[in-house]
């Protein structure tokens, strides 16, 4: 049952992306409403999967890279609903859908992803809180990356004077610059909270704290440079993409640590 939820939610995100592409090509206005419906359906199915999975593993479903990636994609969609409406970034859903689709496909293709869940002893409140908040922070970084890509696309259109329907549907470049920065800040605050929770967890979270700090530091530097205007919006957009790639790689590193243990 849980697997069906996950596969269907993955298809929802693929459908959301496909529809948005079609809508842009067909010059249909306001494709965001359909995106919203598809994203919401995908999110409900993701939540269903995580709920059933947590019942099976007996704790927050973050026991493998497969589960962490699904939890990350759930966080991305959760934040998309919070942020998308706040900034009225109509195409955020369209850009978010392929990212979430990709993460979930990778998760399902991982070796061991199809194995049944194994019940494990609870790690305790603080380690689980640390893991969960840190991954939600990664979700915010993912959205900052998505907004960064949107910024770069819009900037290219403006510079090259290619004002096609893609351009028409993208939000103003100034709003995208703000969104990149704010999502980065939100992720940074969440990751800080996750690291603090990790300190309360003691030795149980030592490896994840170390990796979280590896992500926390570059984002901290970026935010300082940005707030002091020492770095341009264009560069921060590129770095938002690069930093998220780094954050994703730490998930792989974390898995390697767990496997060696």
């Amino acid at each position: 049952m849980e697997r069906a939820f996950l596969v269907t939610s993955t298809l929802c995100f693929l459908a959301g992306f496909a529809y948005a592409m079609y809508a842009l090509g067909a010059k249909v206005r306001q494709p965001s409403r359909w995106n919203f419906v598809v994203m919401l359906t995908g999110f409900i199915l993701q939540s269903g999967f995580l709920h059933l999975r947590s019942g099976e593993v007996g704790r927050c479903p973050l026991t493998s890279l497969f589960e962490r990636l699904v939890f990350l994609s759930w966080s991305v969609v959760l934040l998309y609903f919070v942020v998308g409406s706040t900034y009225r970034l109509s195409l955020l859903g369209m850009f978010t859908a392929p990212l979430v689709f990709l993460i979930q496909v990778i998760a399902q293709l991982l070796p061991g992803a199809s194995l049944p869940a194994v019940r494990k002893a609870s790690l305790g409140f603080w380690p689980e809180l640390h893991n969960a908040i840190s991954l939600v922070a990664y979700g915010a970084f993912a959205l900052s990356c998505v907004a960064g890509v949107m910024y770069l696309v819009q900037e290219r259109h403006l510079k090259r004077h290619t004002l096609n329907s893609f351009f028409q549907n993208l939000p103003p470049i100034a709003n995208l610059a703000v969104a990149v920065q704010r999502m980065m800040l939100a992720g940074f605050a969440l990751l800080t909270a996750g690291i603090v929770a990790g300190f309360f967890a003691g030795h149980a979270a030592a490896a994840t704290i170390a990796l979280a700090v590896c992500v926390w530091l570059p984002y901290g530097v970026l935010l300082i440079l940005r707030s002091t205007h020492r770095i341009s919006s264009r560069r921060i957009a590129w770095l938002a993409v690069a930093a998220f790639t780094l954050a994703l790689s730490t998930l792989g590193a974390l898995n390697a640590v767990h496997m060696s243990n």
């Binding site: 249909v28 206005r29 004002l163 939000p171 470049i173």
Partner: peptide, 26 residues
């Protein structure tokens, strides 16, 4: 108006400038 692009885009120099300005600054 909602299902086609008949009202979309700027059709004069002034409105094209306004449209671009709004795409830059909001």
């Amino acid at each position: 108006r909602t299902k086609t692009s008949i009202t979309r885009g700027a059709v004069s120099v002034g409105s094209a400038a306004v449209e671009l300005a709004e795409k830059i600054f909001g």
